[in-house]
Every structure is written in structure tokens, then in C-alpha cells.
Simulated assay, not measured.
Amino acid sequence: MKIPLPPNGHWMKLKHGKVSPKAEIPNDYEGEDTINLQTTDIDPLVKDILETQGFTLKVPNKLINLDQLILEAQHSFSEKPSNYLSGPNRGTSPHCIDIRATPKNANRALRIMNTLIGNFKARGFTI
């Protein structure tokens, strides 16, 4: 379709507030105006997983409906402030799930793990 690509370094320049020249879009395009996509059937196991009651791939923006393992990990994170010399925050309790994250990403890591654990349990697994 002859769509112009930005020059090397374009996105880095924009990220750092610099000006990058915009590529001109040609006006004389004479090709196809449509794109045909081929779809395939979903694997039966994937379909079964997606249809499971309580299954979701969406990670919430806030920590809600926390699993006990995540509550313990969250408590462990709050007990031990991260020391960058010894590495990122991680669970300290012997019965705590090992989640390693920097303080900036701790909440996000807990939300992702909570979603995964919830999905495992919705599928009938025990943790």
C-alpha cells in the first residue's frame, strides 16, 4: 500500500520532545483499498479456558478481591522496604508467594499475580 515509514530515530526524537520530519503520504495511490485477513478456528482448549466461569484476562487498575496469597505478599512488601543494594522487594514469609518487584512496580505485580491466581482457581487448580 506504499505507506511511508518514519525515519530511524523518529520515535526517540518525539519521546524526548524533539521535532522529527513527517513523511508525506502519496496522493497518487492506485492499489487495493481493502485488506483481507484470514481467521483460524480457536483451539478447543483455548476456547474452553476462555469460556470458564470467572476467567478473565483483564488485570484491574486497583487491588480488589485479593487472594490470601496476595494479601500475605502485600503485607510482606509493606514490612520490608526495598533496599536496592540487596535487590528488589520480595516476599519474606516462608508461606508467602515469591513475587519480586521494585517498589514502583509492586502494586502492578500484585494485581497481575492476583488475576493469575484467580484464573487458576476458576479452572479448578489448587495453589
Rank of each mutant, 00 (worst) to 15 (best):
T92Q: 10
H75Y: 09
E24W: 02
K121D: 03
N65K: 14
M113F: 05
I112D: 00
F77P: 01
L57I: 13
A106F: 01
K13G: 07
G17V: 05
L57D: 13
R100G: 15
S93M: 08
L110Y: 00
N119L: 04
G87N: 06
S76E: 02
K62V: 13
K62Y: 09
H10R: 06
K62W: 04
W11E: 12
L50H: 01
I35Q: 03
S82W: 12
S86T: 09
I49L: 11
T56K: 07
T92P: 02
I35T: 08
L71K: 14
L37G: 03
P94C: 06
I127W: 01
K18Q: 14
F125E: 06
L69S: 08
V19F: 04
I117Q: 00
N114S: 10
T40K: 13
A109V: 05
G54N: 09
M12F: 03
K47I: 11
D43G: 09
L14T: 01
I127Y: 00
I97R: 01
H75Q: 15
Q53T: 12
D28K: 07
Q53A: 12
W11T: 12
R123M: 15
N107V: 11
K47H: 15
H16V: 04
R100N: 14
L50K: 05
N105K: 11
L71T: 11
N114G: 06
C96A: 14
S93K: 07
E24R: 11
N107R: 06
L45G: 11
P103R: 08
Y84E: 13
S86Q: 07
I112L: 11
I64P: 02
A23E: 04
N27W: 02
Q38P: 01
G118R: 00
T39A: 15
S82Y: 10
K22F: 10
L110F: 00
P4S: 08
N8G: 10
I25R: 06
K2Q: 14
F77E: 01
N114R: 02
L50E: 05
K104E: 14
I3Q: 09
K13Q: 10
I64Y: 04
P26R: 14
L71H: 03
G87M: 10
A73K: 02
P60S: 14
P6D: 03
H16A: 04
M12I: 09
P103V: 07
S78A: 12
L110V: 02
K47G: 15
T52F: 07
K2R: 13
L66P: 01
P60M: 14
R123S: 11
F55K: 02
N65H: 13
E79M: 13
L69M: 13
N36K: 13
P44R: 05
V19M: 07
